[in-house]
Nucleic acid binder design. Structure first.
Length: 493
RNA sequence: CGGGGCGUAGCGCAGUUUGGUAGCGCGCUUGGUUCGGGACCAAGAGGUCGCGAGUUCGAAUCUCGCCGCUCCGACCA
């Protein structure tokens, strides 16, 4: 791994010394990322390229995300179900654009039980095909609509370049698949779920995002329209954080998903699909992390506060008893608390360990605090220390955690704003993409050749077409013709 | 898929140039002393040198092939 030379071994006072095992972001951002995911035990590499084990601490984050997002998905009327991993190749190939989009990254099973299969099976890269096959049988009447189903599962896309969480060959996600009676209803659903994603990301994960529509080039294979929420990572690159597709009737036609409408006519349904994946864990790491490691927003953090008792020889028992009592009280107050009562690790070691793991709050409890009936509360994001009386903890901590959550969001938002430039000056655009990167908001004529030219010369792509319209007199960033759209450009993963 | 780097104990590395049967630090185990920002002493455990062929009396070391990780470019949640 990284070259971790002799980094300052903890001088006095907090703040400047770094966690030893982690390469500083400024030195090598990619290495920083790899160091963080490995050292904080979020994942470990598998023997198969692009695959990984998500370790308990990483999976706990995913479970928290699932819980909070699943709630929103259900609140908007959807039900969970499960569809098969294997898809007959023939099914996947029904929708032309869909096959073409996914063919290069499909894993194919050709043998089973030692025999060559009559029909090769595709390991799902996404489940439109197999789900549509079922839907064609489940839907007959307008009374069966809307059909609102979601599934949590794994999918496989054979990737050439992989990075833990951000791009893996197998990943976990949720995919919603809905059918509607009218185009308007499908469009409404598509945008509603985009809104759910935006709310989830901003409220729970403290990640500000830019919502918008994908260009024709960038839209989902087989979709009519794709909407996206785009986040900005700390190296100035954009990350597609979630997508929501209006599939139109493309799949309904080839899979013959029809219903008899009120007017007694047989019609094709209008469909949507939408998903977010374990990639969001990567977003979480990159948006909030710093040179000391992870910084987790309290709402997502598996451990919201860790109690580190200072166990001296004389007062050890007493301190530990107080720490246990405190942990119990805080747990009852609904805080996800962990008491680090391990022997053989110095307090300083534990401080560093939990900071690296991104725990939002640390509560230090030592002999001195016993006398004054307080703990020293230390924030992960700012490092600020504050004594808090025991009696006030159950009441105050939830508020403190919420404040921290809000500060993280505002900090990320400020970073995003500071790294969003705008204008129609093409040279400036190229310069920005070359150096500080971030988002560049610009008018666009809407033609693919301008999109391509910008991409070739800047390596930046249209991340999304903004919902706001350009002004009357605005001109395309690339060709100078009259602008049809306002777009967010950035280099991306 | 193209180009570069790497693969030796859980982690970080030395050893490879010049073949002779593997070592250091951290971590781990046990016992003891410690504990308010990565403590210390002592005794231990741990390696088919990424995998497979080949050359050789003998391969971590030389040759060929493959795999994986990683970085930079073309495609994607």
């Amino acid at each position: 791994m990284g070259q971790q030379g002799q980094r300052t071994p903890a001088g006095k006072g907090a703040g400047k010394e770094f966690v030893k095992e982690i390469t500083p972001q400024a030195e090598d951002y990619s290495q920083w990322y790899i160091d963080v995911v490995l050292k904080t035990e979020l994942m470990d590499y598998a023997p198969v390229k692009g695959c990984m084990a998500i370790r308990p601490y990483g999976f706990a984050i995913w479970e928290k995300m699932q819980e909070l997002l699943d709630r929103r998905i259900k609140e908007t009327g959807h039900q969970n179900a499960y569809f098969p991993l294997f898809i007959p190749q023939e099914l996947l190939e029904k929708e032309a654009a869909h096959v073409e989009g996914f063919a290069p990254e499909v894993a194919l099973v050709t043998k089973g039980g030692g025999e060559t299969l009559a029909e090769p099976l595709v390991v799902r890269p996404t489940s439109e095909a197999i789900i549509c096959d079922f839907y064609s049988r489940w839907i007959q009447s307008w009374r069966d609509l809307p059909l609102l189903i979601n599934q949590w599962c794994n999918v496989v896309r054979w990737e050439k370049v992989t990075r833990p969480f951000l791009r893996t060959s197998e990943f976990l996600w949720q995919e919603g698949h809905t059918c509607h009676r009218t185009e308007e209803e499908a469009e409404e659903e598509t945008l509603k779920m985009l809104g759910v994603y935006q709310d989830f990301l901003e409220t729970e994960m403290a990640i500000p995002v830019i919502p918008g529509r994908k260009s024709e080039r960038e839209k989902f294979a087989g979709a009519l329209r794709t909407y996206t929420v785009e986040a900005l990572m700390r190296d100035g690159r954009a990350l597609q954080a979630g997508t929501s597709h209006n599939l139109g009737q493309h799949f309904a036609r080839v899979f013959e998903i029809t219903f008899l409408d009120r007017d007694d006519e047989l019609k094709h349904v209008w469909q949507t699909s939408w998903g977010v994946s374990t990639r969001l864990i990567g977003a979480l790491i990159t948006v909030h992390g710093d040179d000391r490691g992870l910084v987790l927003p309290p709402r997502i953090a598996p451990i919201q506060a860790v109690i580190v008792p200072i166990l001296t020889k004389k007062a050890g028992e007493e301190v530990l008893a107080a720490a246990r009592r405190l942990a119990g009280e805080l747990r009852s107050a609904g805080i996800r608390i962990h008491l680090d009562d391990r022997e053989g690790y110095s307090p300083g070691w534990k401080f560093n360990e939990w900071e690296m793991k991104g725990v939002p709050l640390r509560l230090e409890l030592g002999p001195r605090d016993l006398q004054s009936e307080q703990v020293i509360a230390v924030r992960r994001d700012s490092g600020s220390k504050e004594p808090l009386p025991w009696a006030e903890l159950p009441g105050k901590l939830p508020a403190l955690l919420e404040e921290l959550q809000g500060d993280l969001y505002r900090r990320a938002q400020r970073y995003q704003q500071e790294h969003t430039r705008s204008g129609a000056d093409y040279d400036e655009f190229l310069r920005v993409m070359e150096r500080e990167r971030g988002f560049f908001v610009a008018p666009w004529c809407g033609r693919e050749e301008c999109e391509l030219k910008a991409k070739e010369e800047s390596k930046a792509t249209i991340r999304c077409i903004a919902f706001e319209r350009p002004e009357e007199d605005e001109r395309c960033l690339v060709c100078g013709e009259k602008a049809a759209e306002k777009v967010y450009l950035a280099r991306a993963y």
